[in-house]
């Protein structure tokens, strides 16, 4: 019985993860839309795609509000990837 309960708990948790992932994807795309809008504004303002000061602020912010269990280094690495992809999106938009 204990094994059955454990298996059913895993199924529930996996369902929950799928829901969270769907929400994450939605949020990441909403974030990407913001980044694209900023990219267009940067182009009009004649600013570079790469703004290291702003990227540092973003990374500092997400680490400051982090409550775990992911440690700050892990949060930093995850958001570095988010930023890398946003920058790529801005570059591709620039080409069009």
């Amino acid at each position: 019985m204990a094994e059955e309960r454990a298996v059913s708990a895993i199924d529930d948790l996996r369902g929950r993860i799928d829901e969270i992932d769907a929400e994450l994807v939605r949020l990441l795309n909403t974030r990407a839309e913001c980044a694209l809008a900023i990219g267009q504004a940067k182009q009009i303002a004649g600013l570079n795609v790469y703004q290291p000061g702003r990227e540092a602020e973003v990374l500092a912010h997400v680490q400051a509000i982090n409550t775990g269990p992911l440690d700050n280094a892990a949060i930093r690495r995850l958001f570095e990837r988010v930023i890398d992809e946003a920058r790529r999106l801005e570059r591709l938009a620039d080409l069009q």
């Binding site: 570079n48 790469y50 290291p52 990227e55 690495r77 920058r87 790529r88 570059r91």
Partner: peptide, 25 residues
């Protein structure tokens, strides 16, 4: 330093590369 990493990324972005940064311990 963070500034040195930023300068490398800035140079690579200017050259047209996409970046996959990974900050290790």
């Amino acid at each position: 330093t963070g500034e040195q990493v930023e300068r490398v990324i800035a140079q690579l972005v200017e050259m047209g590369f996409d970046i996959h940064r990974s900050t290790g311990a």
